[in-house]
Design a protein around this nucleic acid. Structure first.
Lengths: 204, 204
DNA sequence: GTCTATAAAGCGATAGAC
DNA sequence: GTCTATCGCTTTATAGAC
């Protein structure tokens, strides 16, 4: 009972190393991160890291994989209620997630390394963009069933909805540039919902 | 006359270095690129590089700046003709540009380094996303003037149009993942134009 | 498992000859 | 301007004591 039911070992040091590595990698990028830096932040010696992970590559991989497994996208959203309200709620949540510093750092890191670490690109895509799109497609399919939207393909519509949210505001934030005057999360959200409703709303 | 009208010197070696550096940086990323590697590819010695550029940082900066200056976005598109045809032409050009291997490599690189090199992020943004958006906004404003579109703000509409093009297809290509069956440039293009026309077309 | 100490290699940048 | 050769430092990874 006191024994943790471990298929895997949740060794405290191992977790500390992963936590530290996540901070360092997300902060300075893969190449610029050093094992010394990770060791210092984790409060262990470098040799201890190599007792748990065979290489820097594998440590990096473990960090991203763990991060992907933990991401729950955005939890249950009920698709009940006014179409506009539902879509606005979804959009606001997605925008908040996309613009969070951690998600942006993760995106920068994975995009940069995607060609050299295809497994990570896949893990990120599946647990991030693909999972989010699936949730939104399900909601839009619900709305279509209720006659609140008229859709050929909810997956395509979800894709387009997300695209309408990842616009200039996202790009500027991603690049660390200041926002334009009047460029707000709510503005983009409302604009995207307006377009979707005009394109797919029932009363045309 | 034989003398090139140089405010700047188009020294052959200098150009060779810049060409080589561009290939290396876009290929392996900033941190993983080595001055030895650039020197080897350029066919010069490392010392020669440092005769032309003060540091690795500055060489990198020069590469990106030059690349940004040369990008002409997409040259003149006439906004004459059928609305759908104009929008489709614009969309197809932008998609082709966005999905080109060089543009993707550039995007990966700049995104990864944006926080550590804010000047580059700015240069990239101005000559890439911002320039493209300006051209598309101008075209959409033309269409609105002709009564072919009904727009509150052509800049917002251009932003949304671009967002509708940077969807899952772009993400998968960016991450080096295979495309889904039936996921095509033309499909995304047509879908985006459809949404824009339904949202902003005159006959609602 | 965890540490200290160190090996082995690669890096950015420079000196000095030509 | 361009080269060869090298400095001084940091890096990943490992040996060996405990």
């Amino acid at each position: 009972m006191s024994k943790p039911l471990s298929g895997r070992k949740p060794s405290a040091k191992r977790e500390a190393i992963l936590d530290a590595a996540q901070v360092v990698f997300l902060d300075v990028g893969y190449a610029a991160a050093s094992m010394d830096g990770v060791a210092a932040r984790a409060g262990v010696s470098k040799a201890t890291i190599y007792a748990h992970f065979t290489s820097k590559d594998q440590l990096f991989s473990a960090v991203i994989q763990r991060r992907c497994e933990r991401s729950e996208a955005f939890q249950s959203i009920d698709s009940q209620g006014d179409v506009r309200a539902v879509l606005t709620g979804v959009a606001r949540r997605l925008m908040t997630l996309l613009l969070s510093p951690e998600a942006l750092a993760m995106y920068r890191l994975v995009v940069a390394e995607s060609l050299r670490q295809p497994d990570l690109a896949r893990a990120f895509y599946d647990s991030g963009p693909a999972a989010g799109k699936a949730q939104i497609a399900a909601i839009m399919a619900d709305l279509a069933d209720r006659g609140e939207l008229v859709l050929d393909d909810p997956w395509v519509a979800a894709d387009q909805f997300i695209g309408l949210l990842r616009t200039d505001l996202f790009m500027r934030t991603l690049l660390g540039l200041p926002l334009r005057d009047g460029q707000t999360l709510d503005g983009v959200t409302v604009g995207a919902v307006d377009v979707i409703l005009r394109a797919f709303g029932p009363k045309r």
